[in-house]
Design a protein around this nucleic acid. Structure first.
Lengths: 227, 227
DNA sequence: CAGATTCATCACAAAATCATCACAAAATAG
DNA sequence: CTATTTTGTGATGATTTTGTGATGAATCTG
C-alpha cells in the first residue's frame, strides 16, 4: 500500500535488521546496504525515497556518502550516529542532512522522524501544471478539483488518478494492463477487468460527456474530446 | 529580477556562507552579520526584506536582537537554532517570529520556508484584512475572535489556527500532512490523524454549518461554503 | 498547588471505496 | 446467422479510510 522505499545503510547487520523490521511494520518497503560503496550502488539502482545513513562505517564513511549523493540528488537523508560521536558536527550545520537520529533510539521516535522528513519533503515538490483542460473538463491538480461544465464533480482517488492519466495522455489508446501499470502501479496483482469498472464509474460521472472516454474494441480505452 | 535582500545573522562564518550560497542561487541578494550588534547596525542601514537570525550568539543573543528589531519594525524574521537548544522557547509562543528552522536542515527546506514567509508577509500587506469572512463565519485575526451567525464562538488556539488556515485557503484540499506542516509546523512529530480530531472539534463548533469543512476521501479536507 | 482546559493518541464504529464476480449486451469472426 | 470473444454493469464482500468517544499527559489559571 505504502510505496515509499527506504534505503538503510549501516555496517552492522543487527541494526539494519531492527530498523528494517520496524519500517516494514509501518508499511514502508526497505533496501539494505552494509557500506558506503554498496549504498551508492543501491541508491542509483533502486531510487529510494529516503535514506537512513550511518555515520561510522568502514571504507567510505557516512559523510562522504552523503556528499556523493548530494552531487546528484536531493533525496531526504537521515543520519544515524552513536550519541557523543562527532557531537559538534551533529548539531552543527552539515549540508543537506534532513535530520539526525542518535543511537540508541526508540523505534517510535525513529518512525516519527522519518514521517516528519517525508512530510516536509513532499511538501516542497513542485506541482506541475496549474490546470489541465480538455473539452468541458478542467482538472486542477493543485487543489485536486475537477470541473465539468464549470461545476465541480467529486471523484474517488482511483477515479481521479485514472482520469488524470487519460487526460494527460489524451488521444492515446491504453490497454488495461498499461492503465494498471500507470495508475495502479507495477505491483498491483489483480484482475485487469478492474479497469472496466472504474471506466464505468468515470463515464457515469462525466454524464453527458461520457463519450470522452472511448472504448477501442479489442485493445483498451482512450480519452478524446468531440467526435 | 528578485530584489529581495536577506540579512543573515550567525557567528559562524561557515554557516553564513552556506546559507548565502543557496540564497544567491535563488536570486536573493544577501547581507551578513556575525553578531547581534552588527545585526542591528546593518538592519538599520540596509533595510532587508527578511532576516535569518541565529539564536546562539556571543554578546547579544538572537532573542534580544529579535526584541530590539521588533521595537521598530515588523520585518519577517526566521530564527535558526540547533535542535534541542532552548527547546521550550522554540515551541513556546515567542512574539514576532515568523518561522524557525532547526539545524540540521536541508537547503531545499530552508529556501521553501523563506519563500513561504515572504509570501505570507506580502500577503498581509496587500490584504491586511481586519475581518475574514466566509459564509456565516467571520474571523477577526486582530482580536482572535470568531463569529458564527453573528454570535461569538470559542475556539482553542489550535482550532482557531486550523480554521484560519482553511478559510484563508478555502476551496483547496489539503492532506493531513500539509495541514500539519502549515498549522502545527514543520517540527511536529506525531500522528497525522491528530488532524482528524481537531476537524471533528471544529465541525462540532460550527454546528449547523459543519458542512463548511468537507472531507475529500483519500486526500484530506477542504473548507467550502454552500452546497 | 488544585482544577480546568487543551492536546495527542488510541481503539473501535461507521462509511466510502475497491476488486471481483456473474451475467447481460455488444462486437466480431466465420 | 450463430458461435465466440470482448465489453458493460449491477451486486457483493473485503479493504481502506474516516468519524468519534475515551483517556491520560501536558499546559494553563487562579
Amino acid at each position: 500500500m505504502n510505496n515509499t522505499k527506504i534505503l538503510i545503510v549501516d555496517d552492522e547487520a543487527k541494526i539494519r535488521n531492527v530498523i528494517k523490521i520496524y519500517l516494514e511494520k509501518e508499511g514502508f518497503s526497505t533496501e539494505e546496504a552494509c557500506d558506503g560503496e554498496e549504498a551508492l550502488k543501491k541508491f542509483n539502482v533502486s531510487k529510494p525515497s529516503l535514506i537512513i545513513l550511518d555515520v561510522m562505517m568502514p571504507k567510505i564513511d557516512g559523510w562522504t556518502v552523503l556528499r556523493k549523493i548530494r552531487e546528484e540528488s536531493s533525496v531526504p537523508i537521515i543520519m544515524l550516529s552513536a550519541r557523543g560521536e562527532e557531537y559538534d558536527k551533529l548539531f552543527g550545520f552539515e549540508l543537506g542532512v534532513d535530520d539526525y537520529i542518535t543511537k540508541p533510539f526508540s523505534p517510535k521516535e525513529m518512525i516519527a522522524r522519518i514521517k516528519a522528513v517525508i512530510r516536509r519533503s513532499s511538501c516542497f515538490e513542485n506541482v506541475s501544471t496549474d490546470v489541465l483542460k480538455a473539452g468541458a473538463l478542467s482538472l486542477m491538480p493543485k487543489s485536486r478539483q475537477v470541473f465539468l461544465d464549470n461545476e465541480e464533480i467529486n471523484l474517488t482517488p482511483k477515479e481521479y488518478e485514472l482520469l488524470c492519466f487519460l487526460v494527460k495522455n489524451q488521444n492515446t489508446v491504453f490497454s488495461r494492463e498499461q492503465l494498471l501499470n500507470n495508475v495502479w502501479g507495477y505491483n498491483f496483482l489483480g484482475d485487469a477487468r478492474t479497469v472496466d469498472t472504474h471506466i464505468k464509474q468515470l463515464r457515469e460521472k462525466l454524464r453527458k460527456h461520457k463519450k470522452y472516454i472511448q472504448t477501442v474494441w479489442g485493445t483498451g480505452y482512450k480519452f478524446k474530446v468531440e467526435k
